[in-house]
């Protein structure tokens, strides 16, 4: 079953009299439970494509259907709701709320979904435990290493129980050991059935992926099915 159906996506930026065609007709289907890697040189349009898929941005033309919902039809408020309930994000620089402890960061999507305080807290601690941070639950982001912060970010993304997790170069700021650990964690999650779309530069980080999508100059030039 396709959880993402992106069809003929164009994204053009106009600023003044300069028009930049960043995405030039990209189509991609992602199956439920797949782990897809998007690779390509810097400037190929990978991030821009991720923003379209995760409805942080909107294509100039083309349609994106996620989990059966045509994202074009969602209003601002419904988009926020949709991101909360269906999508999970892992950013390159972790993007944690600096004033909140690891647990509280993970509680955010849960509270937003209407869980009560204690339940949200238990679930958040459970999530942090599942990413190996059971001893760090009360730490602030500033008291955690980069690798640990990224784990919190993953735990936060998972806490919302999303259908798809988007990760744009989640290891870019990490050393090889921490990076590998994050990739192992994502691989594990995928094994449990989590759909993941990840952008990465490193071939070796695609070891758990089902498929590699290669982009160049705003187009998909090659798809490799690994298993």
């Amino acid at each position: 079953m396709e959880i993402i159906k992106a069809q003929d996506i164009y994204r053009t930026f106009v600023s003044g009299n300069i028009t930049t065609h960043v995405l030039k007709g990209v189509s991609l289907d992602v199956q439920l439970g797949e782990f897809v890697a998007i690779m390509g040189k810097s400037g190929a349009g990978k991030s821009t494509f991720m923003y379209q898929l995760s409805i942080l941005d909107h294509p100039t033309s083309g349609t994106i259907i996620i989990n059966g919902t045509n994202t074009k039809e969602l209003n601002e408020h419904e988009q926020t709701e949709f991101r909360l309930n269906t999508l999970g994000y892992i950013f390159q620089d972790y993007a944690l709320v600096p004033d909140l402890s690891a647990t509280e960061n993970c509680m955010l999507p849960l509270l937003m979904k209407g869980e009560d305080w204690d339940k949200a807290k238990n679930k958040a601690v459970e999530m942090l435990t599942s990413v190996g941070l059971e001893t760090r639950v009360d730490n602030l982001p500033s008291q955690l290493s980069g690798g640990e912060q990224q784990r919190v970010a993953i735990a936060r993304a998972l806490a919302g129980n999303p259908k798809i997790i988007f990760a744009d170069e989640p290891t870019a700021n990490l050393d090889t050991i921490s990076g590998n650990a994050i990739i192992d964690l994502l691989g594990e999650l995928n094994k449990k059935g989590q759909t993941i779309v990840m952008v990465t530069h490193e071939e070796e980080y695609t070891k758990y992926c089902n498929r590699i999508v290669r982009m160049e100059d705003g187009k998909i030039i090659k798809e490799e099915v690994l298993r």
Binding site: L56, H77, T80, E81, F82, R83, L84, N85, L87, G88, Y89, F91, A95, V97, P98, L108, P109, M112, R156, A157, G160
Partner: peptide
């Protein structure tokens, strides 16, 4: 501002 963007990005309502 970035923080606010991220919060909205992960589905936290503007009102909150």
């Amino acid at each position: 501002r970035r923080n606010i963007g991220i919060l909205k990005g992960i589905g936290i309502s503007e009102r909150a």
